[in-house]
């Protein structure tokens, strides 16, 4: 058993090195396919980051009437958290905090500072900044809470209604992009698998006669199939190594270019934190497609 396995592995390496042209072609096609899958994964990372950024930005701010007691506002906050526990965050911003924030942001803007001084008093209203998970239904839920009679007399205004259309639009765009990306991804991967399958088929086609001779001299199916399947694994592993290096290096060099466009998103650190997923996807896909293609093609020629 062990001797046979050793022999099969040796045959695989021999065939691999004796058919360099075919091996290089198979590895190249496999590597291109793996890169495609990898870029889909990168794309998914960027899309996920963008989605969460957009969803973070679209929040609801409830402004309370001037003079509302802090305790009353905190009650409203508690009520929101009680009724809608999945809410991301509810942050209380007092009059003074709002003023301080304004001053901090516009400290270099003389016109605004002057305007504020002319008003004299602190014109800001206390507020609750409510961040949902981006699901429009949560907005509706929060809106209902804020509109109940108990609280409505405390509230000056809610900037939800103005944002509602945009929120729903963004949400529908995000879900469309996700669905489209998924369908496109599946189609591309399917096409790529077909291309790899055909390349491996061409590689094995070369050995059609050899396979039938092996059958005639009484070799068992696994003794014949083994070297081809192992060659599929070798193709997969080499293609994986190439792709892993390419993705790491390109993430490293693209990172400074992408960061200004997507502030806060570092594609290289995304690669580093998810490296094992990359290994899993690239190696799994490469070796998987390699093995399955070889297996299916040889099976066809084994019917002697």
């Amino acid at each position: 058993m062990f001797t046979n396995f050793n022999r099969v592995v040796k045959f695989a390496f021999n065939d691999f090195s004796r058919n360099k042209g075919i091996s290089v072609a198979a590895i190249f096609v496999l590597a291109v396919t793996i890169m495609l899958v990898t870029s889909l994964f990168f794309f998914q990372g960027i899309a996920g980051y963008l989605t969460s950024k957009i969803q973070d930005k679209i929040d609801i701010t409830a402004y309370f009437k001037d003079g509302t007691q802090e305790q009353d506002i905190l009650n409203v906050k508690a009520e929101i958290l009680k009724i809608s526990p999945n809410i991301k965050s509810v942050e209380y911003v007092s009059k003074d905090q709002a003023l301080a924030y304004f001053n901090k942001v516009h400290k270099d803007n003389a016109v605004l500072s002057q305007a504020l001084q002319e008003v004299g008093d602190n014109p800001f209203l206390p507020s609750l900044n409510i961040t949902t998970n981006g699901d429009p239904s949560q907005y509706a839920e929060v809106a209902t809470i804020l509109q109940t009679s108990d609280f409505s007399n405390l509230i000056d205004s809610v900037d939800f209604s103005q944002k509602k259309d945009i929120i729903e639009k963004v949400y529908s765009i995000i879900s469309n992009v996700n669905t489209f990306g998924l369908i496109l991804g599946i189609v591309l991967i399917f096409v790529a698998i077909l291309v790899v399958f055909n390349t491996i088929k061409l590689a094995i086609e070369n050995s059609k006669e050899e396979i039938s001779t092996m059958k005639i001299v009484g070799a068992s199916n696994w003794f014949i199939r083994g070297p081809f399947v192992i060659q599929g694994i070798i193709y997969g592993i080499i293609a994986f190594l190439i792709c892993f290096l390419i993705s790491g290096i390109s993430a490293y060099f693209l990172s400074p270019q992408i960061s200004p466009v997507l502030p806060g998103f570092d594609i290289f650190s995304y690669f580093l934190t998810n490296w094992w997923i990359f290994v899993l996807i690239q190696l799994g896909f490469g070796a998987g497609v390699g093995i399955i293609s070889s297996f299916i093609v040889v099976r066809k020629y084994l019917e002697v």
Binding site: N14, E209, I216, S220, F223
Partner: peptide, 26 residues
């Protein structure tokens, strides 16, 4: 079997062609 068209293994050397038969037998 000595086949009319030999049925040799084209990707194996002379030595390997003969050895293969013994390897098949284990």
């Amino acid at each position: 079997v000595i086949h009319q068209d030999y049925k040799l293994l084209p990707q194996k050397t002379v030595y390997e062609n003969v050895a293969y038969i013994m390897q098949v037998e284990g």
